[in-house]
Nucleic acid binder design. Structure first.
Lengths: 113, 113
DNA sequence: TCAATATCTCAATATATGTTGAAATGAAAA
DNA sequence: TTTTCATTTCAACATATATTGAGATATTGA
């Protein structure tokens, strides 16, 4: 993850519809969801949804795969990880207590059974 | 961290100068840096810097404290943690391997001695 | 108090972004 | 091979954002 990619990713995440799409896909897991299902979940028109999905894909935050008539979108977890790592790089400088809250906050998501 | 705050934070991070400021302050530690030192490090004019610092502060990503003639800015680590947690909420759905890369990427920042 | 330093505010300008609705594309089923 | 379904493209419009330079405000030291 370099600065240009991080900027594109943050810009993509700074729009309501797109942030909702990403969060929906993050919680949908690696299987993702068909575009139509996403649009239904978010009450977005097809052209609006398509516009935002394409922005997210260009930013590298999601990926797509055709499946019959539908197109299935899923979160790219590696990009999200990379973005987080880029933002927090060198956060400690030898004092882990500084960024421990961030580490714990993220680790907590893995303990929701 | 709610959606509105997350959107404001991502919008703040989606601009080159502001992303650089945040990363500079993240690695500067809790003591932060004076506005002048930030401007010097980033080669930004005073009005431009002031504009972006104020956006970042409004977004809750940094905080300021006057110190004599200068104003010292520092990263708000709790906000960054909250943002990460908001983005990745429910990423696992019982399958920790899905978001383990993100957890590891962040934890790695604390092991740079 | 006066001058110097540090930072902020404002107005003008330029640029980028999101929404809508209609029409086009592409794949599958009848 | 025509129809149906799912998604994308396009143009027009409205809105938001970043930069610049000049001037204003606040704090300190002479």
């Amino acid at each position: 993850m370099d600065e240009a990619h991080a900027l594109a990713a943050f810009a993509a995440l700074s729009q309501e519809t797109r942030l909702r799409i990403v969060r929906l896909l993050v919680s949908a897991g690696p299987e993702g969801m068909a575009a139509g299902a996403i649009g239904e979940a978010l009450a977005a028109s097809s052209s609006r949804l398509s516009f935002h999905l394409s922005q997210l894909e260009h930013a590298g935050l999601i990926q797509s795969q055709r499946e019959g008539r539908s197109i299935r979108y899923s979160a790219r977890y590696e990009s999200l990880s990379g973005l987080i790592a880029f933002l927090m790089r060198d956060c400690c400088q030898g004092r882990p207590e500084v960024c421990a809250p961030a580490v714990n906050a993220l680790a907590a998501c893995c303990q929701t059974p």
